[in-house]
């Protein structure tokens, strides 16, 4: 039995990130609670981070540009989470609900 597939390499991280990203996407698509949507968004961000770091380590290890990008994504997702939650709270005051289907103000 060839167990070399268990020896981790770049592909393992990429596939893991893909799976996490897809799960996050699934959550975004199916959740009705808007906070859960936000959580899944963070999940997808983390998947992207894993990708950045893994690519950096395997393809260009001596320059840590991937890490820098990961830090920026971290910053942006923190900002996004803060603003997103603020918006959710503001919306909740209006609608008295966190159901995404109720937030259809885009429709005239």
């Amino acid at each position: 039995m060839d167990l070399s597939i268990f020896n981790i390499g770049l592909t393992h991280f990429i596939v893991l990130a893909t799976i996490l990203f897809s799960i996050g996407l699934l959550g975004i698509m199916t959740s009705r609670n808007v906070i859960r949507v936000l959580m899944c968004l963070e999940l997808m961000m983390n998947a992207v981070n894993i990708n950045f770091v893994a690519f950096n380590n395997y393809l260009n290890p001596e320059i840590l540009s991937g890490h820098v990008f990961a830090i920026f994504i971290l910053t942006v997702s923190a900002a996004e989470a803060a603003v997103g939650l603020a918006i959710i709270i503001a919306l909740y005051r209006q609608k008295r609900t966190v159901d995404v289907d109720e937030f259809n103000l885009l429709k005239l």
Partner: peptide, 14 residues
């Protein structure tokens, strides 16, 4: 299509 539901839009995007 213009349901105003964010998730439908997101589905179209993906």
């Amino acid at each position: 299509l213009q349901s105003g539901k964010v998730q439908v839009y997101l589905g179209a995007l993906f």
